[in-house]
Design a protein around this nucleic acid. Structure first.
Lengths: 335, 335
DNA sequence: CTGTTAGCGCGTTCAC
DNA sequence: GTGAACGCGCTAACAG
C-alpha cells in the first residue's frame, strides 16, 4: 500500500546521473544540458515524481506557508478576504494556513505561536476586538517574519496595513440619506473601544456637519456588544419625542432588527423612516424592504494584503505602507 | 534582525552534551538521567527553544498536517464544519490546511495534488457538485494517505464517510407540515444528479406516503441550478389550478424567494401557504415571517470526520465506517 | 555542463 | 545513561 514516494535519488540512479544534476534539471536553474534536462523531466513525469516540500523547506529555510489569523471564518467578510488571500498565495506558489481567534486575544496569541513554530514565512492578521498589546507581533517581526495587518490593525506598530476606509463608507451612507431629504438622522454605533466603529461614527458626524445638520446627541447610541443590546437602543430611539426620520447602523444585523421593529410599530420603511446598514451581509438582500448598505471590498483587502506580504517576504519591498481601500454604497429599497 | 533560531545543537554545545542526548531529553523517551533531562528542559526554556517542525517532519515522514478540500468557505455550513475540524485537529496536535474547489472538479483535483505534494498526513474532502470520478481519491489512498469524506461523499469508493441524513431531515420537515394540517404540499427540489437533493426529495415522498397523502407530480419541481431558476418554478407552482397549501424547499434561499413572491401575490404565510426551508441559514432568522427550517450538525460533522481521520492516520482504526448524523427541525413562524 | 562534498535540524540505530 | 555515526530529501559550494 505504501507506494513509496519517488525521490530525486531514484531518478538519479535510473539515469546514471548525480543527484545534484537531477536537482538542477528539475528546477530551471544554472547551465544544464538541454538533453539531460529533457531526460530528467521525462522520467520524473513517468515515475510521477513530486518534489518534497519538506526537504526543500529545510535547506531553503523557507516553507512557502503564509499564516493567517482572523477573528472568525463564519463571518462572510473574513471568508471573502481569505478567498482573496488564497488566490494571490496560489498564484505565487505559497500556501495558506489559517486559524481563528474567536475574538479572544489569548487564542490569538497561541495561534500565532503555533504558526511561528511551524516556521511560516509571513503572517497576515486581523486582530480580535480586544487586542491592544503589540508585543507578540513585534516578537514575530524580530524573528524576521514579516507581518501584515488587514482590516483590523493595531495603531502603534510599525507594519504594513491594509484597511478599509470606514469613515468614508459611513459618510457616503449618511450623505445619501441627507440627499434623500432626511434631516433627523440617528446612528446606532458600535463599541466605543473598537476603531472601526469609531471611524464609522465620525463619518456620520462629519457628514452631518458638512451639510449643516445640527447634531442631536439623543440620536447617537452605542451598542457595546453589537447585537446583544441593540434592541433596547432601538426602542429608546423611538421613545423620543422627536422621532428620527432615518437610521444609520453600524452593521446590517442591527439594521435588520430596526426594520423588524419599525414594522411592528406600523412605521413604514423607507417612507417614514429610512434605514441604512453596513457590510452588505447576505441578509441585506433578503430582508424586506431590501437594505441599503455599505459594501466593503473584502476580497480585494485579502488580495492586496497578501501581495504586500509576499513582496516583503521576497524583499521586493522593505518599507511599510498603510493602504486604505474605499467602500461602495449599495442603494436598495430601505432608503 | 534575523534572530537565528536556536537548535538542538546550540543546547548540546552549551550543556556539553551530545545532540542525541538532548534530543532524547526533549521528548520523554527511552532511559535518560532525570537530572540531565531537567537541565536540558531548563535551558531550552531559557533560550526559548522551539523544535523545528520541518526537520522533524523530514525524519518522521509525517507532517502533522491534515488537508481539507471543500466547495466554498463562504457557505456557513462549511465554515462551521471547518471550525469543528480545527478544534479536533488542534486537540490532537495536528494542523489544518484547506483549499476551496469552487464547485469545480478540476480545481478540486489540483488542490488535492498540491496538498499531497506538501505531504499531508490525511485528507478530508467534501466533493464538488459535479465530481463523480473516484480515481484521484484512490490515488491518494494508494500513497498511504487516509481519506475521509464529509457531508458530500462519493458512493463508489471504499473510505470512511461522515454525512448527514438528508432523508430524515426532509421527512421531519414534511411530517411537520402534515401535522399542521397541510395536505397539498409542494417540493422545490435541487439538481437531479446531486445525491443530497435526491435524498431530501425521497424524504418528502416517503413522508407523503407514510401519511397516505397522494403524490401530485405537479407539486414536484427541480431547480437544476439551485437559486438561478428557482423563481420560475415558484411561479409555475402558483399558476396551477389546484394551488398548494405548503411548500418545502431544498434550501433556505429558495424558501426566502418563495416567501417574497407569496407576499407580492398577497398570499399569507403561514395562514394560506406554509413554507419550510433547509439549512438554517442566517437569513432564515431575519426573514419575515421567520423561516422554519432543518438544521444540520455541521460542526459535529467536522469534528467527527477529523477524529476518524486521525484514528486512521495513527492506525488506531483500519476499517472504514459510514457515519450518518441526524438533523434537527427548527420550527419558526413560517409554518 | 556535471560530479563530489557538505549540511539544513532532528531521530535512530549502534556501540560504549 | 550517553555519544558517534548515519540518514531523511534536497540544495549549494566548489572542483573539474
Amino acid at each position: 500500500m505504501l507506494n513509496k514516494q519517488v525521490t530525486i535519488k531514484d531518478l538519479a540512479r535510473k539515469l546514471r546521473l548525480s543527484v545534484s544534476t537531477v536537482s538542477r534539471a528539475l528546477r530551471d536553474v544554472q547551465d544544464i544540458n538541454p538533453e539531460t534536462k529533457r531526460q530528467v523531466l521525462a522520467l520524473a513525469k513517468e515515475l510521477n515524481y513530486e518534489p518534497n516540500f519538506i526537504a526543500r523547506s529545510l535547506v531553503n529555510k523557507q516553507t512557502k506557508v503564509i499564516g493567517v489569523v482572523l477573528p472568525v471564518i463564519a463571518a462572510r467578510y473574513f471568508a471573502n478576504a481569505l478567498s482573496g488571500m488564497m488566490e494571490v498565495a496560489d498564484a505565487n506558489g505559497y500556501h495558506i494556513m489559517f486559524c481563528q481567534s474567536d475574538e479572544s486575544p489569548e487564542k490569538e496569541a497561541s495561534n500565532i505561536k503555533k504558526l511561528v513554530s511551524i516556521r511560516i514565512d509571513g503572517l497576515l492578521v486581523s486582530v480580535s476586538k480586544c487586542t491592544s498589546d503589540t508585543e507578540i507581533f513585534q516578537k514575530v517581526q524580530q524573528r524576521g517574519i514579516p507581518v501584515v495587518f488587514f482590516d483590523r490593525a493595531l495603531e502603534h506598530i510599525d507594519a504594513t496595513k491594509v484597511t478599509v476606509n470606514q469613515h468614508e463608507g459611513a459618510f457616503l451612507a449618511v450623505e445619501h440619506l441627507i440627499r434623500k431629504g432626511c434631516t433627523k438622522i440617528a446612528h446606532i454605533a458600535g463599541p466605543r473601544h473598537l476603531s472601526i466603529a469609531i471611524d464609522r461614527m465620525n463619518g456620520y458626524l462629519d457628514a452631518l456637519q458638512k451639510y449643516n445638520i445640527p447634531f442631536n446627541k439623543e440620536y447617537l447610541l452605542h451598542c457595546e456588544d453589537f447585537q446583544y443590546d441593540a434592541m433596547e437602543k432601538i426602542q429608546a430611539l423611538f421613545n423620543l419625542e422627536e422621532k428620527p426620520d432615518a437610521i444609520f447602523t453600524v452593521n446590517d444585523s442591527i439594521a435588520v432588527l430596526c426594520i423588524k421593529y419599525l414594522k411592528e410599530l406600523g412605521i413604514r420603511v423607507p417612507e417614514d423612516v429610512a434605514v441604512v446598514g453596513y457590510n452588505n451581509d447576505p441578509v441585506s438582500e433578503v430582508v424586506w424592504p431590501a437594505l441599503t448598505t455599505v459594501m466593503q471590498p473584502s476580497f480585494e483587502v485579502g488580495k492586496l494584503a497578501t501581495q504586500l506580504l509576499i513582496d516583503e517576504i521576497e524583499q521586493k519591498s522593505t518599507q511599510h505602507f498603510h493602504k486604505v481601500l474605499s467602500s461602495e454604497l449599495i442603494v436598495r429599497s430601505s432608503s
